[in-house]
Structures are given as structure tokens and as C-alpha cells.
Amino acid sequence: MITRTLEYLVPGSTGEAVEMLTPSAGEAKLLAGGTWVVPDMTHGRVRPARVIDLRRAGLSEIREEDGHVVVGATATYSEIVASSLLREKVGLLPIAAAKITGGAQVRNFATAGGSACYAIPSSDAPAWLVALGAKMRLLGASGEREVAAEDFFRGAFRTAARPDEMLTGMAIPTPPAGARFAYHKLKFGESGWPIATAACVLGLDEEGRCRSASLALGAVAETPLRVEVGAVLEGSPVTREVAQEVEEIAHRAVAEPWTDVLADGEYRKSVAGVVAKRVLLAAANGG
């Protein structure tokens, strides 16, 4: 039951959305798919006076833009899964988005942008965005700016977006052709929250040696963690031994593990290395 009376607005453009947001920033909530913010309102966790529904703000497009694919802030997971552009250029995203739980009912309406803005530690999208080196496009009364995904996530439920700013899209640099990728998600049960995730993008040369590597862990700490794997991986093939090393590096990278009722920090830290190892081997073997 939503108990607080609210003003419901549907801006027709991003400009209008920002205008509606600015004067009431603290009291307003943007609504993308609503799959998170609506139940939060129902259970009194947030009580906005104003709700700004972005469904007509024109932000659901997925398009190419010099060396990037820009995923609009309100593109749904289902749209990401179905996007042939993404499948061709940033194959990690459709595969990872298909693993969002809650059923087609959720994927049809929930957005990666909403997930990023909410910044729940135990969620999927933040780690993808970090692994892919995405740039988060923010628009506010004072104009537009870009923040690297790595800097965007500031803590549990905290991002670099100011209260009067909204996300318009996520610009993802197109990985080099032939890049390999994989996404590993450890969850408890068919529709459980992510407990530990790992996203990986690898560039391999013809001999199977690693040219570039990016690996990020999700759900194991307040923010996604980029794991520094370059030193061990670059120039070497992805062998079991190397994967073992990556497992240890990833394990050590989790300094302050995230704890919630499903899994405590001790558990998360102990599986962080395992998911890193598994994602790396999966990526090397073709995802």
C-alpha cells in the first residue's frame, strides 16, 4: 500500500524531465521500469511526493555512436536481450541481461539504467558496466556530463549522480572485434538475488594469448570491483594455472565484503575467487 499521496508526472522529453526534477529533487523519484521503486514505495522504504515516469522521455533506444553502443537509460532487459546491435557489438550484455531473474514479467519492464541508478550491491548491471568500461551519461539543470562506470558507483545505494541529475544512457566502448566474453552469476535458487557475479571481456591473439583483459566482480562488495588481472593475463594463454592465480587475486580484491541476509561477507569473499576463475575460463573457451 502506498500511503503518501503523490504527484504523478510523465515528461515527454529529457528536458522536461529535468525541469520536473530540479525544483523537487529531494522529494521526487524518477521511475524507469518501476520494478524496484514501486515496491519500495509500497513498503514505505521511499515516500516520494512526486513521481516522474520516464516512459515517454525517449530514452529506450539502443544505438551506435562512434565507437560506442549507447544503451538508453530506459531500455529494458528484454530489449537488451533482443537487440541485434548489442549481440553483434557487445555480446556480453544480451547474455547477461537474460540472466536477470524475476521472470519475463520483470525483464520486460525493468531497465539496466534503473538498476545502475539504484546501485544495490547485490545486483547484476553494475559489474557489467564496469567490466565494459561504460560511461554513464548524466543530465541535470547544469548540463550534461559523463562519469566512468567505475567512478559512478560510490557505495551501497549511492552513485555519483546528484539528486537533480538523471541518467540518460550508458555509452559502452565497442570491444575489439573477436573479443571473448562471459558472465557468471552465482545465485541461490532459480530466482534468487545475485550473490557473486563476474563479467569478463578478453582479447586473445591468434595463438590464444591474452592481449587485453577486463574482469569485474559484482555483489561481493558495496560497489562492483574491477579485478586487476592484466599483469598475470596479458601475453599468456588462459591456462588452469593462470585461472588459479586470478582466483587468488580476485579473492584478495574483496577487502570489505558485502553482507546481507542471504549471504554474509565471509561467504561472499570465499566464492569471489571461484566466480572469477569460472568466468575467465568460460570467456577463454568462448563464453
Binding site: G189, E190, S191, G192, V261, L262
Partner: peptide, 16 residues
Amino acid sequence: LLTDRFKTYLMPRAGD
């Protein structure tokens, strides 16, 4: 009570 919703009280689903 910390497990006050189906997100934290995990009941089997078809795929489990």
C-alpha cells in the same frame, strides 16, 4: 524478522 519477503525467504521455483 529479516526474511520478510520472497526475495529473502527462498521457496523453490519450477526451475529449482
